[in-house]
């Protein structure tokens, strides 16, 4: 509980203010990428970035940041600066991201359900495993049309059709040495005619109508895939992989920072700490193009960089320089807050 009491009394005026607020700061280690923005923005030096390289690479059970509770003045600046929403600051139970007077980094990631074709390309590409595509596939039986019938009198119970059917649509129920039932599941059959061709006694009568009568028998609406693409906001870091890989431009990402990522390959010793720590899969070691050749030691896909600076912090030999040139933020009336936010820019 922080009390905010001001009282100024003089001969001609009387200014009083009293406010009691419940201010609370909480930290989600699993969302934290170890960028150190909170450490740099904290006005009282209460936050210390941990040994992120060792923690991430060796799965050490330790928090990525340390907060000195004695020093923290519960201002909420770290929460505003955090590009991945790992620090949440609430005033009387309301997160300051929902309070207009506080500034807020502008960033978003959205997948438009009307455009999405549920191909799961984004789900596979997302370096944070933040995307889940839940999809409902069409009924297979509604995508094909045809006829099939097995003449049980001719059938010799050899089982070849059952063994060969790629759709597992044929089942033989062996009741006794010469007593059996054979059935085709028409929901599974795709009228490929493999059974008909393989039957040694021509007991199967089957025809596929898909090519000749498909447009009469089938409704194109039955072939539609429906679903929903969900982004886990706690895990998403707005890197833009989903936007890049989406074949129908359904994903839109806005990043909070603009900047530059520079690698000094003369200094790099290829220890790989940056590659392991980068939350966006920006940095990678290239494969050698031919035996006996060495290409660049370390490469980058800068379009996915969020300029968080985690790689620069973890590099033991200062081979990485992350410049932040722009910060997208909602306006604030407080000059000191604006100054703090601007201090994240590196010029």
């Amino acid at each position: 509980m922080a009390a905010n009491i001001k009282e100024v009394k003089a001969k001609d005026f009387n200014v009083e203010r009293s406010a009691e607020e419940d201010r609370e700061l909480s930290f989600k280690d699993e969302s934290c990428v170890g960028c150190g923005v909170c450490e740099s923005i904290c006005p009282v030096g209460a936050i210390k970035l941990g040994s992120v390289g060792a923690i991430v690479r060796n799965d050490i059970d330790e928090s990525k940041i340390e907060i000195d509770e004695e020093k923290c003045v519960l201002c909420g600046m770290c929460s505003v600066g955090c590009p991945v929403d790992a620090l949440e600051f609430t005033v009387d139970g309301t997160p300051i991201s929902e309070i207009e007077t506080y500034p807020k980094l502008i960033s978003s990631a959205e997948i438009d359900d009307d455009t999405c074709i549920y191909c799961k390309a984004c789900e596979r590409a997302c370096p944070r495993e933040a995307i889940t595509v839940a999809r409902q596939l069409p009924d297979r039986s509604k995508l094909v049309t045809g006829e099939i019938d097995i003449d049980k009198e001719t059938c010799i119970d050899c089982g070849i059709c059952e063994e060969m059917c790629p759709a597992d649509a044929i089942t033989i129920d062996q009741k006794g040495p010469e007593d059996f039932d054979i059935a085709v599941d028409k929901d599974k059959c795709v009228y490929c005619l493999v059974c008909k061709k393989a039957c040694p006694v021509d007991a199967i009568m089957a025809a596929c109508r898909t090519c000749s009568y498909g447009e009469y028998d089938l409704d194109p609406k039955d072939a539609e895939v429906t679903g929903k693409a969900l982004i886990d906001d706690d895990a998403c870091v707005r890197c833009g992989w989903c936007e890049e890989v989406c074949p129908v431009d359904a994903a839109k990402v806005e990043k909070p920072f603009e900047g530059e990522l520079n690698l000094d390959l003369d200094k790099c010793t290829t220890c790989g700490a940056c590659v392991d720590v980068c939350p966006c899969d920006v940095l990678f070691f290239p494969k050698s193009s031919a035996p006996g050749t060495i290409d660049d030691k370390l490469m980058k896909d800068e379009q996915f960089c969020i300029y968080c600076g985690a790689c620069e912090n973890v590099c033991p030999v200062e081979a990485i320089d992350v410049k932040r040139t722009g910060i997208k933020c909602t306006p604030t009336k407080s000059k000191s807050w604006q100054k703090s936010i601007d201090s994240l820019k590196t010029n």
């Binding site: 040994s51 390289g53 060792a54 923690i55 690479r57 060796n58 790989g272 700490a273």
Partner: peptide, 18 residues
Amino acid sequence: TKCGTCQVFCPTDAIWLE
């Protein structure tokens, strides 16, 4: 600088950060 590289490469867990 606690980058963790030695621990990643050590074949016998003889060097580590704690």
